[in-house]
Amino acid sequence: MEQGLDGRQAVYVHVGGCHLAGKRSKGVQRDQALRALTDGVDACPHCRPDSELGYLE
């Protein structure tokens, strides 16, 4: 999960090992990533965690 510049709000969900995940990223559990996606946090367009996790809008 990549945090915004303020460090409080998530801006992207990434798959572990995504080379686009920046320094503000941290690992989270699968259920947390799915919850973030359902709450409207964008999926990284490169690594497509929504497809990887089985969540498609």
Results as ranks from 00 to 15, higher is better:
48 R>M: 05
14 H>Y: 04
50 D>C: 15
3 Q>R: 14
39 D>Q: 10
34 L>M: 13
21 A>T: 06
40 G>K: 07
23 K>G: 12
21 A>V: 08
43 A>D: 12
11 V>E: 13
12 Y>F: 11
53 L>V: 05
34 L>D: 01
44 C>Y: 04
23 K>W: 14
57 E>C: 10
35 R>H: 14
48 R>V: 08
17 G>V: 01
48 R>E: 10
35 R>S: 15
47 C>H: 05
21 A>C: 09
38 T>H: 14
46 H>N: 06
43 A>K: 06
43 A>F: 04
36 A>E: 04
10 A>N: 06
43 A>R: 05
54 G>H: 08
47 C>M: 07
56 L>R: 07
25 S>W: 00
41 V>M: 03
6 D>E: 09
26 K>N: 04
11 V>M: 12
56 L>C: 03
36 A>L: 09
25 S>N: 02
45 P>I: 09
35 R>M: 10
12 Y>R: 14
14 H>F: 05
4 G>D: 10
10 A>Y: 00
3 Q>V: 06
31 D>L: 15
10 A>E: 01
53 L>F: 10
15 V>L: 06
57 E>Q: 08
11 V>S: 14
17 G>L: 01
22 G>T: 04
43 A>Y: 02
17 G>Y: 01
26 K>Y: 03
4 G>M: 05
32 Q>A: 08
10 A>V: 00
11 V>C: 15
5 L>V: 11
43 A>W: 01
13 V>P: 00
10 A>P: 04
55 Y>E: 07
50 D>W: 09
56 L>M: 07
42 D>I: 01
13 V>Q: 02
29 Q>S: 08
39 D>N: 04
36 A>V: 00
14 H>A: 14
27 G>A: 12
23 K>I: 08
56 L>F: 06
11 V>R: 13
37 L>S: 00
29 Q>M: 13
27 G>R: 03
